[in-house]
Design a protein around this nucleic acid. Sequence first.
DNA 1: CTGAAAGCGCTTACAG
DNA 2: CTGAAAGCGCTTACAG
Lengths: 335, 335
Amino acid sequence: MDEVETPRLTIHEVARLAGVSHQTVSRYFRHNETLKPATRAKIDSVVQQFNYRPNLVARSMRTRRTNRLAITLPVSSYQWPVRLLRAASATAHEEGFQLEVVSVEGDPRARAERVLELAASGHVEGILSLTPMEIDPAASPVPVVVTGDYDDKLRGVNELADASPVREIVEYLASLGHRVFFHIAGAQSWASARNRKLVYEETVERLGLTSYGVALGDWSPQSGYDAVRGLPDGCGVTAIVAGNDHVAMGAVRGALSRGWRVPGDVSVFGWDDEELGRFATPSLSTVAVDREVQGREAMARLIAAVRGEPAPPPPERSINRVIVRESAGPPPRRA
Amino acid sequence: MDEVETPRLTIHEVARLAGVSHQTVSRYFRHNETLKPATRAKIDSVVQQFNYRPNLVARSMRTRRTNRLAITLPVSSYQWPVRLLRAASATAHEEGFQLEVVSVEGDPRARAERVLELAASGHVEGILSLTPMEIDPAASPVPVVVTGDYDDKLRGVNELADASPVREIVEYLASLGHRVFFHIAGAQSWASARNRKLVYEETVERLGLTSYGVALGDWSPQSGYDAVRGLPDGCGVTAIVAGNDHVAMGAVRGALSRGWRVPGDVSVFGWDDEELGRFATPSLSTVAVDREVQGREAMARLIAAVRGEPAPPPPERSINRVIVRESAGPPPRRA
DNA sequence: CTGAAAGCGCTTACAG
DNA sequence: CTGAAAGCGCTTACAG
């Protein structure tokens, strides 16, 4: 490879080459409009020729500002929340921040340590953590907002709100005549998975329905497939609530592989409104989560905290919407 | 919120509190083993109490090293290459680097400008760009490796290698008896999409087959669905080569919606071996790309460049593997 | 409109 | 084994 790297000029060298002082070059890069056109032109020429760009690390060393935020994710996450990231990223940019995505690994303790290190590093002015983790915000020199999985402030008020579509799903299926249910849960390290399981169990109980049980999966299609393949013949299950669309897809496949029609013999619900699920056959019934709103809202909260402003009000309406598609229908005449 | 942020101590203050010099604290954090246990204990206590962690920006200001690499992606990318990111991230960590993911937006010029700014920022020691973009590596003060979409060094030698499975797919379908083909391409701003289209056209021509044409899509299921819905009745197409699994999923759905059986009437191939495609019905025939190898290899190249070492040899065997599943079969007796 | 001085929080030789 | 001095590349008052 032609690894010809440009020698990195300093602001002093640029100033010397342009015949001005280094402060003037500094002003040039901070878009200070008070430069004389002639001065600007001289600097322009040197900058073009040497491809000079200011060292942002040095700048932030001095200004104590970086204009950078970080969003942390578990690298092991089954799937990265692309839509949320995109919305968060857009919001950050609109507010004048660069956003970097940092994956954090290990157990909750190690993850918290890594986040604290990042917080103290001076690289970023705030952190939005999508990682399930216990962190003492007071231990961090910059604001840390934890979202996605659980939120320390919404806890109690809204903790189960995220899972409330499960209630809606079970009620809907019951209204179609389903009586025996089955839940294939996501990884239990996620509060969202635990909450869905909890609400599932509560609702089944409250409505006097039967639950054939809960399979503890890992968010993967394989876990859905295996769970359904593992059901005994004649178990009577006609309604399956899967942790997400991946699990649901596997569950549908598992059912079909046993000769069960979907939704003729068994109905399946997923979660996330994955695009592929919409085009699958049968198309997946699911829960659409407005990741756009979720990402924007979380990032807006972080930015408010960074600026020392009060937190913006949370979105007034639920970001979840149950969508019924082909994979759900009435149970067979006699189970 | 209890936005109680720890006041950020400096190394001097920690030193004073611990009753040592700041250099000693510096050594403590650089794991210098020559500290007396008693000294270490004193520092330990202060660090614990105040949650002090060194300012990495100041450190790298001085050392001119950050131990950080960046990977840049187009935020508009239809889907983030999660598996590749994960492999690249793992490789970086193993080699002692932190990895940050930065999304870059805008047209190719703006993207190149953004990457150059990042390269000059002092924040990172090297950049792996997954963004299609024209950049002069010589204009960057740190190594920039462009991969995924095209690679400046492999161009000519391997540029079309990535698309060679298309040849294999067309040949396979032809061997089953297919004669009339259709290609639904991905977004043409991607070299991979252009290459697949090119190889498709070449192979169809070379084998004396018929192409009903190429639909230019955007990598989305909807584009696959629309393309198939747009085919006239009696067009005779029995074999569809889709740009990726998303497109293929939409194409299958479009075909089924017209009453065409898959694969009875029409066979469909995708690309990427998406997990959901494996569990779809019919399961998708596809191309498995070893993103693990791709991500590790690209990151290893970047790290070698950062260290001024020679580039590691590329993987000796193809990272692509054609997988035949239910969505592909012989054409109907008479088209 | 532009220049000389101080300092952001560290690490690196160099002494002791 | 530990301390005083210099400096990484910028920006921020403060003069002129």
